[in-house]
Design a binder for these strands. Structure first.
Lengths: 198, 198
DNA sequence: GACGTAACGTAACGACGTTGCATTACTCTG
DNA sequence: CAGAGTAATGCAACGTCGTTACGTTACGTC
């Protein structure tokens, strides 16, 4: 009953694509309801029909960012040695973040003051940690006294800090060899967490 | 020649105080030229006379955040053992960030999309790392093969990641014992960086 | 005392997110 | 098959934002 929805999934996808494109080319400043709708060729009201408002758009972008992070993690092959897998997952984290620098700001930094992800959004987002968590579970199996949950969080903090600093241009002065900083940092943390193993 | 400046240092300080207060109580959403000027009781034009515009206000807040971080670092007494000093500096970093959660977002996360600190701002801000850098220089003195600059950056990334996650509420699930996570993370990184010493 | 100059307050511009409101287009009912 | 009911739409407007053009004011200088 009532008028059927004119703006369905395809309008939704078009809007999100436009948002992602705008974000990548012009940053958050260009992200507005009017700009988005104009880009796709629908009325600004359509954004409210599909997403309920700007927070809805940001929430969808947030989940899209989480999806990309998850895909990068899942692309890492499972390995016998959990520590080797953790290192690869770390670089997958970096690749996922750098592939969507602005969206990463929405994902884990508070890049849009008016947006705060809901509890469901957060729960949806942290599932990307599952691979890392599993690897740490295995690594901690023969290392009594090391809590896998805590170890995962610690590594996450390091990775997030590295991403945040790199995206913010704070690692630019490191002789250009940012990758070496990453390698060294991840190895140091693992050495500190599992001193016996290596 | 010309009309003398009516809005001098005291207006500037009042505006910055109001901005800090607004930020702490209502967040970045409440930070606007009109709101600021209204709080202090001057015309909105005064903000442009004093700061040149909203970016100028944000730049000043950025430097104020850097000052607070610096003060927290300088409050740490110098110690014989550089590693012990580094641990205390780490908790000073945490205290400085948590004391001004919103300003920390402006400081190292890109909490205001339209604001990008100038090179001078960044250079001014990173001077807070001097204490940590000096401690790492001493710690690396008897540890050939460890680059103090790289070690400082690695620890910075970890501390920043921990702060960002804690402020973002991502560490809330850690059985409430966030401090233990910090202690453990910093110790792990130090153990990994200086395996011989400990 | 008149002039030039620079900072001031007022009011406006365009753009923002959001929302009534009249309209439209469809389904269900008689 | 016509009419009623309903929900989504486009349009226009509201209040807000950062910023700025403009007329005014207050001071230093001649």
């Amino acid at each position: 009953m009532g008028r059927p929805r004119q703006h369905g999934t395809e309008t939704r996808d078009q809007l999100l694509d436009a948002a992602t494109r705008l974000l990548a080319t012009e940053g958050f400043g260009a992200l507005s309801v009017r700009r988005l709708s104009g880009e796709v060729g629908v009325s600004s009201r359509a954004v409210y029909s599909v997403f309920g408002g700007m927070p809805g758009v940001l929430g969808a972008l947030y989940r899209r960012a989480a999806d990309v992070m998850n895909e990068h993690h899942e692309a890492v092959p499972r390995q016998e040695d959990p520590l080797a897998e953790i290192v690869e997952l770390a670089f997958a984290y970096r690749a996922g973040a750098l592939a969507q620098r602005d969206l990463y700001g929405l994902y884990l930094e508070r890049a849009v003051p008016t947006f705060c992800p809901s509890d469901e959004d957060v729960a949806y987002a942290v599932r990307a940690h599952l691979r890392a968590r599993q690897a740490f579970e295995r690594a901690c199996a023969d290392q009594p006294g090391v809590d896998p949950a805590r170890a995962t969080i610690q590594m996450w903090a390091l990775l997030h800090g590295l991403c945040s600093l790199e995206i913010g241009g704070m690692l630019a002065g490191m002789d250009g060899d940012v990758e070496a900083v990453w390698q060294n940092a991840v190895n140091s943390m693992l050495r500190g967490l599992f001193p016996v193993a290596r």
